[in-house]
Design a protein around this nucleic acid. Structure first.
Lengths: 196, 196
DNA sequence: GTCTATATACTGATAGAC
DNA sequence: GTCTATCAGTATATAGAC
C-alpha cells in the first residue's frame, strides 16, 4: 500500500504529483483538467501517476485533503477559538492568499454543488463543518460578552462564511479593487463589543 | 443568418437548445458538459445544434446572455434605483430562486476566474458591472439620506455582492439551513436610516 | 515504481446528402 | 434546417514488460 508508504520510493513523488494536481485542477477544475497533463507536469507518465493515485477522482480528493491540511496548519495548532479564530479568518496569513490555493477552493466549491460531481459530498461536508466551527467560535465569544447581545451566532456565522467566499471570488477577478480584510473588518466590528 | 432570424424555422428551436444548454451547463459547467448531450435533450443531432450555435463556447455565451435577460426582466423595466433596487436584490422574485439558474451562475462564475476559460472576460465584466450598479444605487440612497452617514457605498456594494454570491452557494449546498433574504436583511438594515 | 502500448469511449467540429 | 458519417484528437484506465 503506497498511500501512506514513505519507504523504498522517491520521497517527494506524491508531493510532486499533488503540487501538479493543484496547478491543473485550480485552473481547469475536475472536468477541465486531465491526468495526462498533471502527470507531465509532475515529470512522469500517466500510468506512472495512476500507480500512486488509482483514479482521477481520488487524485482530486487527495489534493483537496492536502489543501485542508495546509489550511489547518496555517490556522495554528491547536486551532484557536472564540474571537482569536475570527481574527485569524479575517486577517489570514500570507500563504493563504496564493492564487492557486484560493482558486482551487473557489472552483471545486462551485463544481461540487452539482449532484453527480465527485466532490459533491466533500464540499457539502466541508461547508457544514466550516459553518459549525465559526458558529462555535462566535458562541464562545458571546459567552465572554464580546458580542453585542442582539447578535445571533448562527446567522452571523452564515454571514461571515458567505462573505469570505464571495470576497475570494472578487479578489480573484479584480485583485486591485478588492480589500478582503478591510471589508470583513468593517462588516464584523459593529457586531462586537471589543476591538477586532 | 439564423442568429436572430425567427422566420422559416421552428420558432422554438433556439429556445429549446438554450434550455437544454442551461440544464447541462448548470450541472457540469463548460468542460463537463457536452454538445452532444445538449443536442440530445433539445431533440436534435449534434450537427443540427451546431447549425444554430457554431461552437460550444458560443453556445455557453448565448445561454449566459439569455440568463442575463431573464434576470434583467425580473428586476423590473426600467431597472429600479436607490433603495428600491436593493430591496429587489434582497428579496428576489420566485423565479430567480430556481436551482438551475442559480447553479449556472455559481458554476460559471467560478470556472470563469481561470485565465484561459472561454467566459473569463464575461465573468470579469459582469462582476464589475454588478458591483457598479449596486454602488450607484447605494450612492443614490445616501444622497436621499437613507444611509447612515458613516457608511461607504463602494465598500458596502462589495460586501453586499459578496454576501449574495456566498449565500447562493450555501443555499445550493444546504437549502434547508439557508435564509438568504433574512441574512441579507440582518446585515443591511443596521446600515440604513429607513426600513428595508 | 515506471514505462510503453493499448483498449475503449467520447470529444468538438466538419462534409455533404437531402 | 436537419441529418448521417466521419475526422482527428483526447479522455481515463488497464495490461504487462522491465
Amino acid at each position: 500500500m503506497t498511500t501512506h508508504g514513505r519507504r523504498g520510493e522517491h520521497l517527494g513523488r506524491r508531493q510532486q504529483i499533488l503540487a501538479a494536481g493543484l496547478a491543473v485542477f485550480s485552473s481547469s477544475g475536475f472536468h477541465g483538467g486531465s491526468v495526462r497533463d498533471i502527470a507531465r507536469r509532475a515529470g512522469l507518465s500517466q500510468a506512472g501517476l495512476l500507480h500512486h493515485f488509482p483514479s482521477k477522482a481520488q487524485l482530486l480528493g487527495a489534493v483537496l485533503t492536502w489543501r485542508d491540511d495546509i489550511a489547518r496548519r496555517e490556522l495554528g495548532e491547536p486551532a484557536p477559538d472564540g474571537l482569536d479564530l475570527i481574527r485569524r479568518l479575517v486577517a489570514p496569513p500570507a500563504v493563504t492568499r496564493t492564487q492557486e490555493l484560493v482558486r482551487l477552493r473557489v472552483i471545486t466549491s462551485a463544481e461540487g454543488v452539482a449532484f453527480g460531481h465527485p466532490v459533491h459530498g466533500y464540499v457539502r461536508h466541508r461547508q457544514a463543518s466550516v459553518l459549525d466551527m465559526v458558529r462555535q467560535a462566535l458562541e464562545h465569544a458571546a459567552a465572554r460578552g464580546e458580542l453585542r447581545q442582539d447578535v445571533d451566532p448562527a446567522g452571523t456565522a452564515r454571514m461571515l462564511v458567505a462573505l469570505m467566499d464571495g470576497l475570494r471570488v472578487q479578489w480573484l477577478l479584480h485583485p486591485e479593487q478588492a480589500d478582503i480584510t478591510g471589508d470583513l473588518r468593517r462588516c464584523l466590528q459593529p457586531l462586537l463589543t471589543v476591538d477586532l
